[in-house]
Simulated assay, not measured.
Amino acid sequence: MGARKKRAPRRGSLGFSPRKRASRLVPRVKSWPEVDIGKPVPLAFLGYRAGMTHVFMVDDRPGRPTSGKEIFVPVTIVETPPMFVAAVRLYGYDPNRGRYSLGEAWAQPPPELELQRRISTLGSFDTDKMLKSLEERLDKAVDVRLIAASQPKLAGGLSKKKPDLLEIKVGGVSDVTKLFDYAKDVLGNLIAVNDVFEEGQLVDVIAVTKGKGFQGVIKRWGVKELPRWHKHRKGSRRIGARSHGRSTFWETPQAGQTGFHRRTEYNKRILMIDDDGYKVTPAGGFLRYGVVRSTFVMLSGSIPGTPKRPIVMRWAIRPPEWYLKLGVRKPEITYISLASKQGV
């Protein structure tokens, strides 16, 4: 009989500790990529997760055994109604305190947006006066952001009316003046997902994962359960010494909140952007969502969150080497499954 194993890789990453509930349902984007494409462009967009299906497409990734062949790909559908640009905000930079706001200019939102449901103190604004004030501080600005409001009433699977707000960085060029001119042009107007992304592009998905409540160490950390012999009659899920009390190591797996965490998944490829939601809506609609009625984005693979959850898509901050060499290429989709998902 061999010697008993005394070491094992740790279960569960400590990089996500503390595993507590997300503070907000619409995640704030904390990092932005440096983009240089020669024209200003918003670097993120907000949509709502509808559900999953699958497609067949031609694999155009180089160096793969399936390159040039038809492959099966699971996909996630995110409904992305146009967003209303409600405000422009400028940021300055100070070495001692980092970025700080130089001011913002708000546009009067249309009544059908019902933005007062989200901002109860919303009043009338003198947009021209505030824009002029921002132009006077433009020499101190290092960053231009848009505050955009979603339109959930246009999404087919949502019943809520309250819009979600997202602060979006404007990138594409390094000249702050050009960025500010672009922000002034789109202030008070609608931006579509086509204005931000294109088919074949890689994006990062930021969302809040599915909540699972209070769970034990087996499900929360993936530790191994002890064999249920007579010597373990006091508990097969016990962790061991210093697992309780004041002397507990912080690295010790403990029971607690599982799921409903803010997470980022990198390099999800956009396979399709279209205005006809019936191209991807399965028979009977998506489970717990319904029919996609406005513009949608088809992403390869799975993403965090439940149906109807707000999803933030951002320009890829660390794309792979093959993508940097070949650039954006429109994928060739040969088949989209519309089979019913109600019995799954």
Rank of each mutant, 00 (worst) to 15 (best):
E34F: 09
K140S: 12
K330I: 04
V78M: 08
A105D: 01
L146Q: 07
P40C: 07
I333L: 10
L187R: 01
Q108K: 13
P304S: 05
A283I: 14
G2E: 15
V85E: 04
V88N: 11
I168Y: 10
L131H: 03
F249E: 09
P95Q: 12
W221I: 03
K169S: 14
I147S: 06
G63S: 03
P111M: 00
V144W: 10
N267P: 02
S120D: 09
P18W: 04
L326W: 11
R293G: 03
K129S: 13
L158W: 00
S31E: 13
I37K: 11
G123V: 07
G171R: 06
K268P: 01
G256C: 12
V35D: 06
R99D: 14
K169W: 07
Y335T: 00
P74Y: 11
I270S: 04
K184D: 01
D181A: 15
I147T: 13
A155D: 08
A22P: 06
Q116Y: 13
A86I: 02
L46Q: 07
Q215F: 02
R318K: 11
G188D: 02
A50S: 09
S31Q: 11
R329G: 02
A241T: 10
G256P: 02
P227W: 02
Q342G: 07
A50I: 02
G222Y: 07
G301A: 03
R293H: 01
I206Y: 01
V203N: 03
P152I: 02
K69H: 12
W322T: 11
K210G: 11
L102Q: 12
V29H: 04
E79D: 10
A22H: 05
R61M: 05
I311R: 06
V41Y: 03
P109L: 03
W322M: 08
V328A: 11
L187F: 00
A86Q: 08
D204E: 01
S101N: 11
S159I: 03
P110Q: 03
L138E: 13
K140N: 15
G284V: 09
V217N: 07
D128P: 04
K234S: 13
K212P: 03
G68Q: 05
I168Q: 04
Q342R: 06
R7Y: 15
E135W: 02
G216L: 04
F197H: 02
G103L: 07
I206G: 05
P307R: 00
S31W: 06
D274P: 04
G103W: 01
P82T: 05
A8F: 09
L25F: 10
G235F: 07
I317C: 04
G171M: 08
